[in-house]
Every structure is written in C-alpha cells, then in structure tokens.
Amino acid sequence: MIDFLHLPEVQSAFAPLIAAWLGGWLAHKSGKAPIGIGVIVGFAVAVLLINGVDFRTLTAMRKIIVVGVITAIVGVLVDTRHTRGATLLYMGLGVIASLWVFGLFLLRKSGMEMIIAGAAIIAYVVWMLFAMKPLKVDGRRAGAATVALGIGTGATALMGSSALIAQLAFALSAAGGGYILALLMTRSNNAGTTVTFPVALLVSLMGCATVAFAELAWIVLVILGLIPVAARYAPVLEHWPRWFQIGFMILASLVIAGIALAYAWWTGGTDPYTTSITLEAIYA
C-alpha cells in the first residue's frame, strides 16, 4: 500500500545518506566542486521526496528550503572564489532569511512581542552561523556537527509535534552522514562554507520554526546552539583511526542533542505518547 519512496526512513535517512555520499564522492573525484556539496545534494533529494517541487504556497517551511538552496550556492561560490567579507555576507543573509521566513508570523504579533520574537530568531540564527563558521576548516567536525544538529533539531521537533520539520532535520543529519562517508572514502578533510553555511542556516531556521509554529520551549534552542561548540572542542587524539575520531566527535555532539531532547521532554508538556502520535504521523 505504501510506495517505497513514501517510506519516511527512505525519505529522511537512506536517500539523503546515499545521495550525499555519492554526491560528495563524485564532486571530489571530478575536482570541480567541493566534497561538501554532498550535504546539499542529500538534503535536496530528501526535499524532493518529502515536499516535491510544489512551491506555489510559500509557507515558512518552504521558504526555509529555498533559503537552503540559495545558501548552498552562496557557500560554493565563497569557497571557490574566496570572496572577501564572507562573514559579513553570511550574517547579512542570515538576518534577511530570518525576516523573510518568519515575516508573516512576526507581523501577526504586536509591539514588544513582535520585537522580542524577531530578536530571538535573529539571535539564534546569527549565533549558529557564528558557531559553525570555525568548523569549515575541519570536515570531521563539520560533519559531526551536521549529524548531531540534524538529529537534535529533528528529535525536538517531534516533541513539538511537527513531523515535517523532524523529517527535514533528520534528512540533513543523514546527508551529514553521507558526507562523512565520502570524507572517509576519499581521505579528504574539506568542509568549507559549502557545508557550514547552509547547515547553520537550515538547522537554525528549522529550530526557530519548531518554537514559533509548534510546541517547543525556546530554551531548547539555547542547548542545541551548543552542538557546534561540542563538535569543535571534542578532544580526539591524532593517532586514533579517523573513523573513530569522527565517531567520538559525533558522540560528544549527540550528548548535547540528548540534553536538549531531555529538556524538551521534561518541560514541553509533551510525553512519550505525544511523540508516538507524531511518529505515527511520520509513518502515515
């Protein structure tokens, strides 16, 4: 009854993982694109399977997807052309993207409530861009952060009763996994803004969407915001095998995601039963 491509594990795990792996590997072999492009290829495949190409009704979630595509292009351009003032460009695009995605939501609020909500959204987006930026020099850590941010954002979105955000975030995590596989296969350690810019913007906007549109406590975002820091400073020894180093980095980052998840569970007024309902929706 359920077509293979409609299975959520295919849409949000297998397809983005394989697409990112192949995309990254082929990009590296061709030498014409950064290996990190695999993350975006994987996410794009998941978007096609989950949302299709229907962008007629430009909801906030669809705007986030469009932002992901634009930032991926910007990231590749910055990496290949070594653009000056890139940091300013990211931050500016982050602020513009935040206002575009959440503009309608913010306009429905009044006075101080609108200012506080808008400032909080921009602060989280800018923080995530700032925290992910240093990881561009280390593919292992950028990949680990992507995996943990995707899982953390997706799992807390499930707590907030949004299966759609959860699926997209899990897909980004799987794409991060595919990218790591490509890194391991090619012995490359390249990340660049091709990875860090779109990932930072996608997870931060998806996290804000869960708080704004679903039922997630905002403090969860503060905890999730520490994932890039954990990925950056996770202590690994150079003589460890590479796969083990990355595994450890993912584990360290997932600890933070786990804390965010526990907090969402504890404070969000939600419970395992809620999550089971949302999971059922994913499997619907």
């Binding site: 909801t59 679903a214 929706a281």
Partner: peptide, 19 residues
Amino acid sequence: GKRDEHLRSPDFFNAAEYP
C-alpha cells in the same frame, strides 16, 4: 488533543502563521 496539536503545526494548517 495531541492530534489537534499536530494539525495546528506546520505539517498541516500552520495556525501560527495562518490563523
């Protein structure tokens, strides 16, 4: 109630954005 929360989320009516 739990299903209603899901229906209000961005998956369906996105009530916060489109009340």
